[in-house]
Simulated assay, not measured.
Amino acid sequence: MASFGLQVIRGLFGLGEHVAPSLAGRAAFELFCRTPNVKRPTEGERRALAGAAGFMTEARHHRLKHGAGCIAVHEFRPEPGRASGATVLVIHGWRSRTEYMRALIEGLRDAGNRVISLDLPGHGRSSGRRLTLASAVETVALAQQWFGPFAAIVGHSFGGAVAVNAVSGFVRGTAPVPVQRLVLIAAPCAISAIFTGFSDMLNVGPRARAAMSRTVERVAGHRLEAFQGDRQLAAVPVPTLVVHARDDREVPAWHAEQYADAGGHVRLCWADGLGHRRILADDGVVREAVGFVDSGKSDLRD
Rank of each mutant, 00 (worst) to 15 (best):
G107M: 11
G107L: 12
H66G: 01
P78W: 06
R125S: 08
R102G: 07
R97N: 12
F55H: 08
E43C: 00
E58R: 14
R109F: 10
T42D: 13
K39R: 15
Y100C: 03
R97W: 01
G44R: 13
H62L: 02
G112I: 02
E79S: 14
G93Y: 03
G54W: 00
G44I: 02
P36S: 13
N113E: 13
H18Y: 10
E45F: 02
P21D: 05
R125Y: 07
A103D: 15
G67A: 09
A68L: 04
G25L: 03
V73S: 07
I105C: 12
R125P: 00
M56R: 13
R46I: 10
A20P: 06
R46V: 12
A72N: 12
P121R: 02
P41G: 02
P21G: 03
S22L: 08
M101R: 04
L64D: 09
E75P: 04
G112P: 05
K65Q: 12
G25Y: 03
L89P: 03
R47N: 08
L89Q: 01
G44W: 06
A48D: 15
V115R: 07
L108E: 07
G124D: 10
A86V: 05
A28T: 12
V115H: 05
H61I: 11
V73Y: 04
R47L: 15
E17T: 03
F76T: 03
L108A: 11
P121C: 06
C70I: 01
R125D: 15
K39Q: 14
T42I: 00
D110Q: 15
E45S: 12
G81L: 10
R114I: 02
E79M: 11
V90P: 04
R63L: 05
L118F: 01
G69C: 00
I91W: 02
H61E: 12
I105W: 11
G107K: 13
